[in-house]
Amino acid sequence: MCRWLAYTGEPLQPSTLILDAQQSLVKQSLNSQLGAETVNGDGFGLGWYPANEAAGGIPALFHSTEPAWNDENLRELAHAIESPLFFSHVRAAAGPPIQQTNCHPFRYQNWMFMHNGFLGDFLTMKRDLVLAVDPSLYPDIKGTTDSEVVFHLALTYGLMDDPIEAMRQAVRKVESVGHGLGVRFPMQGTIAISDGATIWTFRYSSQGRSRSLFHSVEIDTLREMYPEVERLNLFGRRARVVVSEPLNDLPGAFLEVPESTVAILHESGYQYEPFLEAA
Rank of each mutant, 00 (worst) to 15 (best):
W4E: 13
T8M: 12
P11R: 13
P14E: 10
D20N: 11
Q22P: 07
Q23T: 13
S24G: 04
L30P: 03
G35P: 12
E37S: 12
D42L: 04
F44Y: 13
L46N: 02
P50A: 14
A54W: 03
A55I: 08
G56Y: 00
P59G: 09
L61S: 05
L61K: 04
S64K: 03
T65F: 04
P67A: 15
W69D: 11
W69P: 02
N73Q: 09
E76T: 01
S83Q: 05
F86R: 00
F87K: 11
S88E: 03
H89C: 03
V90R: 00
R91L: 01
A92I: 07
G95Y: 06
G95N: 03
P97K: 10
I98V: 15
N102L: 09
H104D: 07
H104I: 13
F106Q: 07
F106H: 01
Y108K: 00
M112C: 11
H115D: 13
L119K: 04
L119H: 08
R127E: 15
L131D: 14
L131A: 13
L131H: 12
S136V: 14
L137I: 10
L137P: 02
I141N: 10
I141T: 08
K142W: 09
T144G: 01
T144E: 01
S147W: 06
V149R: 10
V149I: 12
H152N: 13
T156Q: 13
L159N: 06
D161R: 00
D162L: 09
P163V: 05
E165W: 13
A170M: 08
R172N: 10
G180Y: 05
L181K: 15
G182M: 01
R184M: 15
Q188H: 15
T190E: 06
T190K: 04
Q207V: 13
S210R: 14
L213F: 14
V217Q: 08
E218N: 03
D220H: 01
T221R: 08
L222W: 05
E224R: 12
Y226P: 11
E228R: 12
L232M: 10
L232N: 09
G236A: 00
G236L: 05
R238T: 09
R238N: 10
V241P: 02
V242Q: 05
L247I: 15
V257W: 02
P258L: 06
E259W: 08
S260K: 10
V262C: 11
A263F: 00
A263D: 02
L265T: 09
G269K: 03
F275G: 10
F275H: 05
L276T: 10
E277M: 05
